[in-house]
Design a protein around this nucleic acid. Structure first.
Length: 218
DNA sequence: GTTCTAGAAC
DNA sequence: GTTCTAGAAC
């Protein structure tokens, strides 16, 4: 790997920012090792990254989300290649149930107190079907944009159980892409008390005061 | 999916 | 002047 060590001083006169240098080196190394790929294929790489994988069995691999949008944020992926929700059929129902059960197990292992949701983005950016397992605090520096927020608190986030029911009933999952795009643009609303906010920083300052632990049964 | 940044909003 | 967002990335 010695050949990969490149000092910026090797390029006098090139005033590249550190991030650009890192990006350049990563692309060069990925290209040299044959692992280069479009960003949308990144989950496949993560599935084979021991740093990312926290659980694996014969059907499913669980990874930490690379940019977690809450204190706990994991992705459950089937080993079998399934591109997206639209490609699901009744033959996948057993797998979908397993994904949900795995999600509950992973969530409890991570934190028994917090509320979690299990579900899919209606129109995901990353290829390869993946179920989000995300705690409902949404307290994370990686949550930065309106799109991030709305993708987890509006109907753009489809509960795992809703997908399973749809496949049982209709044998498929249908999505209106235009409708989903509109959801991502809607005004910022607290997922707990429905209060409206003008900016992401204001919303983030607000949500930390909500209790998102599971209701106590006594 | 993220990074970067121009210019809007304050 | 600073904060924040939205859109390009070849």
């Amino acid at each position: 790997m010695a050949a990969c060590v490149v000092k910026t001083s090797c390029f006098p006169g090139l005033h590249l920012q550190k991030k650009n240098v890192i990006h350049f080196l990563c692309c060069a190394m990925a290209s040299a090792s044959g692992t280069a790929g479009h960003w949308s294929k990144g989950l496949l790489a993560s599935m084979n990254d021991p740093e990312a994988v926290i659980d694996a069995d014969e059907d499913l691999v669980t990874i930490k989300d690379k940019y977690p949008k809450a204190k706990f944020h994991f992705l459950i992926l089937p080993r079998r290649k399934i591109p997206n929700l639209k490609s699901l059929t009744r033959e996948d129902l057993d797998l979908l149930e397993k994904m949900h059960q795995k999600g509950e197990k992973i969530a409890n292992r991570a934190n028994e107190e917090l509320q979690f949701r299990f579900g899919y983005h209606a129109v995901p950016s990353m290829s390869h079907l993946h179920m989000h397992v995300i705690s409902q605090d949404f307290n994370s520096p990686c949550l930065k944009t309106k799109k991030h927020w709305n993708s987890f608190v509006t109907d753009y986030f489809v509960d795992s159980k809703a997908v399973i029911k749809s496949i049982q009933k209709h044998g498929q999952w249908n999505v209106n892409k235009e409708e989903m795009d509109q959801l991502l643009k809607q005004d910022l609303k607290c997922h707990i008390c429905k209060k409206m906010f003008r900016t992401i920083p204001e919303l983030k300052a607000h949500i930390v005061f909500h209790d998102v632990t599971k209701p106590k049964t006594r």
